[in-house]
């Protein structure tokens, strides 16, 4: 589904965020990308849909080369990749429905989108997704009236209505409380399974990643240093990724609830 070869990103000023990364994600697999801040997680998924232009290397999604294509071809490629953001990145002054339908912008022409004339099939699909995400009846609320969890659900609907082959998910739970975080992760896992989507999920919370995914990739200073199932992620491995820390120690359970 997703094939990355030799992906390298050097920012102006010489910071090497990604250093020749090779990665394959098959259809139907939810993959968590972990690593300390600044390891290049965010850069990696933004290089896949070229919101950040890679310096070298290739990205292929669903048989289409993403790197090296022109503006028009890039737009077509982006339609096949849904993206979900840390701070939701909803357009706050638009309604929930407009936000969800904005995921179809790559499919409709400019004037139709300007007049909000989306095909009936898109509208049907939007209602189906809102139902599925537990947002029934919310379509006419403005995005800035929603709670964090609700916003992220709208963000998920917006990504899925693109009918993507691949989901790029950037810290989906970083701004949410623990309970909502789990609900959002569960929703993502279920939706990926239902639609057999490939997904890369950047995530800080290693425990949460372990709970929900089949495969974890560890990134450190722009290089992949771990790639395997959650069970293989030992304390030694965590030290390799994040640096020295007492991984066995955990806070008392009472604190864990309120954390």
């Amino acid at each position: 589904m997703l094939t990355i070869r030799g992906l390298t990103k050097t920012y102006r000023g010489g910071d090497r965020a990604l250093d020749s990364v090779d990665l394959d994600v098959p259809a139907g697999q939810l993959m968590a990308l972990i690593g300390p801040s600044g390891a290049g997680k965010s850069t990696l998924i933004r290089c896949v849909n070229r919101l950040v232009e890679p310096t070298a290397g290739s990205v292929e999604v669903d048989g289409t080369m993403v790197t090296g294509s022109g503006t028009g071809a890039l737009r077509l490629a982006r339609r096949r990749m849904g993206m979900i953001f840390q701070e939701y990145a909803l357009v706050e002054r638009l309604s929930v429905m407009e936000n969800v339908l904005s995921g179809r912008l790559g499919y409709v022409g400019f004037w139709a989108s300007w007049l909000r004339r989306f095909p009936q099939t898109d509208v049907d699909e939007a209602f189906r997704l809102l139902d599925r995400a537990g947002l029934t009846g919310m379509q006419d609320k403005r995005a800035d009236q929603l709670s964090g969890g609700q916003r992220q659900r709208v963000g998920i609907c917006r990504a899925l209505i693109q009918n993507p082959a691949l989901l790029l998910v950037d810290e989906p739970t970083a701004s949410l409380d623990p309970k909502t975080s789990r609900q959002i992760m569960r929703l993502l896992v279920e939706l990926c399974a239902e639609r057999s989507l490939a997904a890369i999920v950047n995530i800080h919370d290693v425990a949460l990643a372990r709970m929900f995914v089949q495969r974890i990739v560890g990134l450190r200073a722009g290089r992949i240093v771990f790639d395997g199932p959650p069970e293989a992620l030992t304390d030694a491995m965590l030290t390799e990724i994040y640096g020295e820390e007492d991984w066995a120690a955990s806070a008392p359970p009472a604190d864990d609830e309120t954390a």
Binding site: M97, E98, R116, Q120, V123, D124, F127, Q139, D140
Partner: peptide, 16 residues
């Protein structure tokens, strides 16, 4: 005001 209405038996959506 945004609006969702039933048209020809299907749920439709228009901004106003």
């Amino acid at each position: 005001m945004p609006n969702s209405e039933l048209s020809q038996g299907r749920i439709g959506w228009q901004r106003r």
